[in-house]
C-alpha cells in the first residue's frame, strides 16, 4: 500500500506541474497588453512601461514562471492590480462562497440519488422503476444554467421566497447566506443527481447478479436483507468514483451558475479576471481549481485501492 501511495503521489505531483506549465503558457498568448488595457488608449509609453515593470511583465518568461511557482509554494499567489488586493485574499474571500455551494450541491445530489438508485434497483422492471429512469434521462439532458433560470423565475420572481441573486455574506447570519445559495445548489445538484442515481442503480444491479448474492439468497436470506447487507457496500465503490468526478463538474459548473445568480465566488472571479486580462488572478485560481480536482481524484483512487486490494498491484 505504501509503495502504491508513493507511486500515485509522484504521478499527482508530475500532473500538477505539467498543468501549471500549460496554464502559464496558455495565458502568455493572450492578445493585448494588460498594462495597455488597464491604462486605456491615452496612456503614454512611459507610464505603460512603468506599469509593465510593476506588474512584473518586463522580466523574462522563465523567470516569471519561477517567481509565480516559488510564490505559490509559500502561499503567495501574487498581487492583482485590477482588484488592488493580494490574489490570496481574493481567493480566500471567494472560496467561502464556492466551496459551500459545491458541497451543498454534492450533498443534495448524493442524498437524492442514492435512495433513488437503491429504490429503483430493488423494484427493477416495475412501473415505478421505468418512470424514475425516464425522469433521470430527462434530468441528464437539462442544462443546469437553464434550470437555474427557471428556478429563479418560479421561486424568486413569482413566489419571492428567495433572493434572485447576490450573496449577503456569512456575517449577516447563517440563514440569509444559505438562502441565497439554495437555488444555485439545487440547479447544480439535480442534473448530477440524475446521473448518480442511474450509476447507483446499475452498480447495484451488477452486484445483485454476483454469485455470492445468489448464495446468500439460497441460504434463506430475504431479498431486502441481501440488498442492504451484502450488495449495497460493494455497489457503492463505483458510486464513489463518480462522486469524485462530479466534484470536478460541480467546480466547473459554478462558473456559469455563479454568473446566473451573481454570486461572488471563484467561478465569477475567474470569469471577470479573464475579461480584465488580470493574468495573475486567472492563473492562480485555475491552478488551484485544477489542483483540487487532481487531489480529489487521488483520494478517490486511494479509497478505491483501500477497498479493493487487487488494484494496488496495477497502479
Amino acid at each position: 500500500m505504501a509503495y502504491y501511495i508513493v507511486r500515485r503521489l509522484l504521478i499527482v505531483l508530475l500532473t500538477l506541474w505539467v498543468a501549471s506549465v500549460i496554464i502559464f503558457a496558455m495565458l502568455q498568448v493572450i492578445p493585448g497588453d494588460p498594462a495597455q488595457l488597464m491604462l486605456g488608449i491615452n496612456a503614454t509609453d512611459d507610464s505603460i512601461a512603468a506599469l509593465r515593470s510593476q506588474l512584473g511583465l518586463d522580466v523574462p518568461l522563465l523567470q516569471r514562471y519561477l517567481n509565480w511557482m516559488s510564490g505559490m509554494m509559500v502561499g503567495d499567489f501574487g498581487y492583482s492590480y485590477t482588484y488592488g488586493a493580494a490574489v490570496g485574499s481574493l481567493i480566500a474571500e471567494r472560496v467561502v462562497v464556492s466551496l459551500p455551494l459545491a458541497l451543498i450541491a454534492l450533498t443534495l445530489s448524493t442524498v437524492i440519488a442514492i435512495p433513488v438508485g437503491i429504490f429503483t434497483a430493488s423494484r427493477r422492471g416495475t412501473a415505478t422503476d421505468t418512470t424514475a429512469m425516464a425522469i433521470t434521462q430527462v434530468g441528464i439532458a437539462i442544462p443546469n444554467f437553464w434550470f437555474a433560470i427557471l428556478l429563479v423565475y418560479i421561486f424568486a420572481i413569482s413566489f419571492r421566497l428567495v433572493p434572485a441573486g447576490g450573496f449577503p455574506g456569512w456575517d449577516t447570519g447563517l440563514w440569509p447566506a444559505l438562502k441565497s445559495l439554495l437555488l444555485p445548489a439545487i440547479a447544480l445538484a439535480l442534473p448530477q443527481a440524475a446521473i448518480l442515481s442511474r450509476v447507483t442503480r446499475s452498480a447495484l444491479l451488477d452486484t445483485m447478479a454476483e454469485d455470492y448474492i445468489r448464495t446468500a439468497r439460497a441460504k434463506g436470506l430475504t431479498a431486502q436483507h441481501v440488498l442492504w447487507h451484502h450488495a449495497l457496500r460493494n455497489a457503492l465503490i463505483p458510486v464513489l468514483t463518480i462522486l469524485g468526478l462530479q466534484f470536478a463538474f460541480l467546480l466547473a459548473g459554478t462558473i456559469i451558475i455563479e454568473n446566473v445568480f451573481y454570486l461572488p465566488g471563484l467561478g465569477r472571479l475567474v470569469f471577470q479576471s479573464i475579461q480584465r486580462l488580470d493574468l495573475m488572478v486567472v492563473q492562480s485560481v485555475v491552478v488551484l481549481l485544477v489542483a483540487s480536482v487532481i487531489l480529489i481524484n487521488f483520494l478517490v483512487d486511494l479509497a478505491y485501492a483501500w477497498a479493493d486490494p487487487r488494484l494496488r498491484r496495477e497502479g
Binding site: A19, M26, L27, A248, L251, G253, I274, V290, I294, N297
Partner: peptide, 17 residues
Amino acid sequence: IIFAFPALLSAVMITAI
C-alpha cells in the same frame, strides 16, 4: 492531464483568450 482540467473552465479560458 487534460481530464484534470474541468472542461468548461478551460473552454471559458480558451474562448476568452
